[in-house]
Nucleic acid binder design. Structure first.
Length: 309
DNA sequence: CAAAGCTCCTGACCGC
DNA sequence: TGCGGTCAGGAGCTTT
């Protein structure tokens, strides 16, 4: 039975609903790619900030400082989108849990897309395109930082490995996990270890690597002469890459009527599938109970106790 | 220092 | 149908 999750929007498949919406690295990357054609090279003609804060306060004169700037390039760092501006500042965007970017269709000014309750920032480009940042739960944030301060700023200073970077491999991952007595599940959720993973993709990566979520992180690092860390690094890359590909095809194949970016259908092996058999599993689900759900550091963990050791 | 717990927030869902 | 309770989670902060 297929199980789909649509990132960044409450979504029903007809037999299962997910309300937890989690922009993790693949969703953030999909949003970045969707924004790029509308923002890169464009001047921000109008910026409207509609409340004083999100998870943290907006910086002083946020809208005025952003307005009139040209966006040179959009980058991603972990779950952050970095919009590099011509004046040397970086417009930092984090979607938190429920943050969405909505690109209004051309001609929005007819009132068809009036700002909603949770539209906190509204951007209009010199091409007349309007982008709304909507975040019901306000776990997201936006700020402005000099480009030169990114590396040392508290938000970025201690960020962990970039899982899609060239230097992400079993050796680097093992080094990051070494000495950690916390469960591998919790360690991977820590942005200071690997930057960009969230609850869904941690569960999926551990499943594909065949590692039990309860194992201590340092044991994973030390196991099998590094082969286990290597497997895990490979699984993380694969899982994230597949999800980004799914997001990319959603951008390519469907013009979202709402213009909302970053949500796409994607199938998960274990996440949200408590009691179901894992893919290709031939064990007796009646007897073994299928995919298990436990709670670790206050978050749901889904795993297969037979395939993950 | 590390690790676990608490907290922010709203919407969806469930049971009555 | 309405209403209150529960759950979801990213990540900084607080506590141990």
């Amino acid at each position: 039975m297929p199980c789909f999750h649509r990132a960044n929007i409450a979504y029903g498949t007809g037999f299962r609903y997910f309300t937890g919406v989690m922009p993790e690295l693949p969703e953030v990357e999909t949003v970045r790619r969707g924004l790029a054609p509308v923002l890169e090279g464009r001047c921000l003609r109008r910026v409207e900030q509609r409340r004083p804060d999100l998870r943290i306060p907006f910086p002083e004169n946020f809208a005025a400082r952003l307005q009139g700037q040209r966006v040179k390039r959009l980058d991603r760092l972990g779950k952050y989108i970095l919009a590099r501006l011509e004046d040397g500042n970086v417009w930092v965007i984090h979607l938190g849990m429920s943050g969405r970017m909505v690109i209004d269709p051309p001609g929005f000014s007819d009132g068809a897309a009036a700002p909603g309750r949770h539209d906190h920032v509204i951007i209009e480009t010199d091409q007349g395109r309007r982008i709304r940042f909507n975040d019901a739960r306000r776990f997201g944030l936006m700020t402005l930082l000099p480009e030169s301060e990114i590396a040392t700023h508290p938000l970025f200073r201690d960020l962990g490995l970039e899982p899609l970077g060239n230097d992400f491999n079993g050796v680097a991952l093992a080094a990051a996990l070494r000495g950690k007595k916390t469960p591998i599940k919790s360690a991977l959720l820590d942005q200071h270890v690997v930057a960009g993973l969230g609850n869904i993709y941690v569960c999926e990566s551990l499943y594909h690597a065949g590692i039990a979520p309860l194992r201590q992180a340092h044991r994973v690092a030390a196991a099998a002469k590094g082969a286990q860390a290597e497997n895990l690094a490979r699984a993380i890359r694969q899982v994230l890459g597949d999800a980004i590909a799914a997001g990319g095809s959603s951008l390519r194949d469907h013009v979202q009527p709402s213009g909302e970016l970053g949500y796409f259908q994607h199938r998960f092996a274990v996440y949200g599938r408590e009691g179901e058999p894992c893919p290709g599993c031939d064990c007796d689900v009646r007897r073994k109970g299928g995919i298990k759900r436990i709670v670790q550091s206050g978050r749901s963990t889904f795993y297969c106790a037979i395939r993950q050791r």
